[in-house]
């Protein structure tokens, strides 16, 4: 009863002024709110760092490096967004990234041509994703546990491939990292382009295809989606395959970035990816979120990291600040959800 009252009041007020129309915009697009909040935080971080470091922070070199250093995390966050929007979670991505990275380095070291090695490692990531998806969909295993099995599997397999790091000599892989297309002081590497392409393709799939709409529908209400005749089972498996594939791609990018495969890479990276997605405004309950938001989340994460390095503070602060930021966003999201539920 009170909910309907507030709503009709809001409607009558809407005609009264410009400030109210801004309010109206946010009411209608409440799902966008957290993403805007993330963008605001990102701009604030930039402005703060610029002021604090007396104009040394916003340089073309730093901003370009932000994309370069976080390309792998961006790709992971893109895949994770799909899973989280369906209401699931994928804990395996950090380990899958390590596994595909070391596998690629090993295959190349044994003389396999790049044209075969790259598809093999991408497929490797997708297969682990497929296993998780099948467990979730056809055996009713909770996503948390199924992807936990994926985490163990991939981490163990990474050590089966090699117990120590393997250097990559292959020029084609190193090209991905060393080439710099530069305009003025700005530059972008092929790895950065791959990451941005991943964002673009994912945003296209999420918003302009039938599959993307099904992903949102499942997150909103799985049973409704099923009753509407949407292909729930196929899509639910597919999001884990996409996440696994992205993890494979991230493995490739990370191997190019570091010039070597290392089985201990990416321990805990899945949590960074989840944190970035949440900071970017995707609701963990599913149904709401944007790939672009996850990109902003990754940049927020990356910027904090850069600022901490600039300030020469201890790296342990990084974990504390990311934790605190995550908490802030969750509380904001919680308030938004509570409000929209109140409105019915």
């Amino acid at each position: 009863m009170t909910a309907t009252m507030t709503r009709s009041e809001g409607r009558s007020e809407k005609r009264t002024g410009a400030s109210v129309s801004v309010q109206g915009f946010f009411t209608r697009h409440s799902a966008l709110m957290p993403t805007f909040a993330a963008l605001a935080i990102l701009l604030l971080l930039f402005a703060g760092a610029e002021a604090f470091l007396r104009g040394d922070f916003i340089t073309p070199r730093n901003i370009s490096a932000l994309l370069l250093d976080n390309a792998y995390l961006l790709i992971l966050a893109v895949g994770m967004t799909f899973v989280i929007v369906t209401g699931g979670i994928d804990l395996s991505v950090g380990s899958v990234m390590a596994f595909t990275g070391i596998l690629g380095a090993k295959l190349l070291a044994e003389g396999m041509p790049v044209a075969i090695a790259i598809p093999v490692i991408l497929a490797g990531g997708a297969v682990i994703g497929l296993i998780i998806g099948v467990l979730v969909q056809y055996f009713n295993v909770q996503p948390f546990i199924a992807s936990l099995a994926g985490l163990f599997l991939a981490r163990g397999l990474a050590f089966v491939v090699s117990l120590s790091s393997i250097k990559v000599e292959e020029p084609a892989i190193l090209w991905l990292q060393s080439t710099r297309f530069s305009v003025g002081g700005w530059y972008i590497t092929p790895t950065g382009i791959i990451a941005l392409l991943a964002v673009a393709v994912a945003a296209f799939v999420m918003h302009l295809t039938r599959m993307g709409r099904t992903v949102y529908a499942i997150g909103g209400s799985e049973s409704s989606a099923r009753l509407m005749g949407l292909k729930v089972a196929r899509t639910k498996v597919m999001v884990y395959v996409i996440s696994g594939f992205c993890a494979g791609l991230a493995g490739l990018v990370l191997t190019a970035y570091s010039g070597a495969g290392y089985p201990r890479n990416g321990i805990g990276t899945e949590l960074d990816a989840i944190a970035a997605v949440v900071i970017g405004g995707t609701l963990l309950t599913g149904g709401r979120g944007y790939v672009i938001g996850s990109m902003i989340g990754v940049f927020v994460y990356g910027t904090i990291k850069t600022i901490i390095t600039f300030m020469g503070a201890e790296q342990s602060w990084m974990q504390i600040i990311v934790g605190a930021l995550l908490l802030l966003f969750i509380v904001v999201q919680r308030a938004i959800v509570a409000r929209s539920e109140g409105r019915g």
Partner: peptide, 26 residues
């Protein structure tokens, strides 16, 4: 605050090790 447990405890999972590192001075 009624935050989902997995996320609520993720906060401390991320921040806790940082706190531990601060206590031992790295």
């Amino acid at each position: 605050l009624k935050i989902q447990p997995i996320i609520a405890t993720l906060v401390l999972m991320l921040a806790g090790r940082g706190v531990a590192l601060l206590i031992t001075g790295g």
